[in-house]
C-alpha cells in the first residue's frame, strides 16, 4: 500500500518526519539513511544570530528517555543560507521543513522574511516550545497574545505553510492549540520536550547548569499521546504528532489519535535508520494510512450515533 498522505496542503510520500534537533540539517546522517525516502526532514532550529548553546553537561540518559539542555546551539541564519540551502536543492522527494527560533518576535520574522525566497523550503516550523533557552521560544509559547502576534506576522511574510510547534509544559495546551488555529497557522506540531531535572547527590546541586532540561524518548510516549488525543478532539488543524515514538505500533497509535503525520526524534540516535525502517514496515503490513488517521474520533462519533 502506498503511504502517501497530506499534511494540510503538503503532500508527503509517507507520514514519517525527522524531528527538529535530532537529525541535524539532514547531511550528517546521509551516509547511513537515504533521506530522499522520508516524508520530511525538520532541520535543527535556526535563529537570526549564531547561538553557542548551554554550558556542559548537556545530555543525560534516564530510563528509556533522554534529558537534554542543548540550548539551541546553531550557526545562525547567514551560515544556514550559505551552507544548508544549496546542498538541499539537490535533494529530491523529501520535504524540507525549516525550524525557526528567536529571542523575540522580530527575530523569527526576519529569518522567515529572508528565507521565503527559497523554493526548496516547503514550510516553516515556529519553535515556540524549546525549554532550554531563557529568552523567546517558551516565553512566547506561554503567552497567548504573543503567539497570536507571531503567527499573524509570520503569515504576512510568507505564503509557505506555517507549522507551530507547541510545548507540553502548560496545563492549557488545548487553549494554546486553539489560539494557534484562530491566528491562522496551517499545521500544529506537538510536542516538544517535557521539562525535567536531575539532582547531583554528590554536589547537592542541579546536574544541569540551566537547572532544568527537556525530556524526550520512549519514556514520554503515553504523556505525548494523551495530549494529542486532547488536542485532536478540539482542533481541526492537521497535526504532526510526536513524543517517544519508537516502533510501528507507536506510529499507528498517533495516527489513530488524530495525527496526520508523525515525527521521530530521540530514536534517531539509537537507530539512525528508524524512519525508513518504520516506513518500510508499514508498507509491508499494507497499512492504509489515510483510513486510520483520526479513526479514534470517527469511531466515537459512530458510537454516539448508535447510542
Amino acid at each position: 500500500m502506498d503511504l502517501k498522505t497530506k499534511l494540510g496542503n503538503i503532500e508527503l510520500q509517507n507520514p514519517l518526519i525527522a524531528a527538529s534537533g535530532t537529525f541535524g540539517y539532514g547531511f550528517e546522517i546521509k551516509d547511513i539513511i537515504n533521506i530522499e525516502e522520508l516524508g520530511a526532514v525538520t532541520t535543527k532550529t535556526i535563529t537570526l544570530h549564531p547561538r553557542l548553546g548551554n554550558p556542559l553537561p548537556r545530555i543525560l540518559e534516564t530510563p528509556a528517555g533522554l534529558l537534554n539542555s542543548i540550548g539551541l546551539q546553531n550557526p545562525g541564519l547567514k551560515a544556514f543560507k550559505k551552507n544548508i540551502i544549496l546542498p538541499w536543492e539537490k535533494i529530491k522527494n523529501v520535504k524540507m521543513f525549516v525550524s525557526v527560533g528567536g529571542n523575540d518576535i522580530s527575530e523569527y520574522i526576519q529569518v522567515i522574511a529572508e528565507l521565503d525566497q527559497y523554493s526548496r523550503i516547503d514550510a516553516f516550523e515556529l519553535n515556540i516550545s524549546c525549554p532550554n533557552v531563557k529568552k523567546g521560544c517558551l516565553a512566547i509559547g506561554s503567552n497567548p497574545i504573543l503567539i497570536e502576534q507571531l503567527i499573524t506576522q509570520a503569515k504576512s511574510q510568507t505564503k509557505k505553510p506555517i507549522i507551530v510547534k507547541i510545548s507540553p509544559n502548560f496545563s492549557n495546551i488545548i487553549e494554546t492549540a486553539k489560539i494557534t488555529e484562530t491566528a491562522g497557522a496551517d499545521i500544529l506540531s506537538m510536542v516538544n520536550t517535557f521539562l525535567g531535572t536531575k539532582i547531583d547527590i554528590k554536589t547537592k546541586d542541579f546536574y544541569f547548569k540551566n537547572k532544568v532540561a527537556g525530556l524526550s524518548g520512549p519514556a514520554i510516549k503515553p504523556l505525548a499521546l494523551k495530549l494529542l488525543v486532547d488536542v485532536a478532539e478540539q482542533v481541526k488543524l492537521p497535526i504532526i504528532g510526536m513524543g517517544g515514538i519508537s516502533n510501528t505500533e507507536d506510529v499507528l497509535e498517533f495516527l489513530i489519535a488524530g495525527a496526520s503525520a508523525v515525527s521521530i526524534g530521540t530514536m534517531n540516535f539509537r537507530n539512525p535508520k528508524i524512519l525508513l525502517a518504520l516506513a518500510n514496515e508499514m508498507k509491508k503490513q499494507d497499512i492504509n494510512v489515510n483510513e486510520i488517521i483520526g479513526s479514534l474520533f470517527n469511531r466515537k462519533k459512530n458510537k454516539t450515533l448508535i447510542l
Binding site: G21, T22, F23, G24, E28, I29, I32, K44, G53, L56, P57, R58, I59, L60, L66, N68, I70, Q73, N268, F269, P272
Partner: peptide, 15 residues
C-alpha cells in the same frame, strides 16, 4: 571523551 547523545554530529551534546 564526552558524554554523547548521537555520536554523529547531530545533537551538539558532546561539545
Amino acid at each position: 571523551e564526552e558524554y554523547m547523545g548521537c555520536g554523529l554530529g547531530i545533537c551538539n551534546g558532546c561539545v
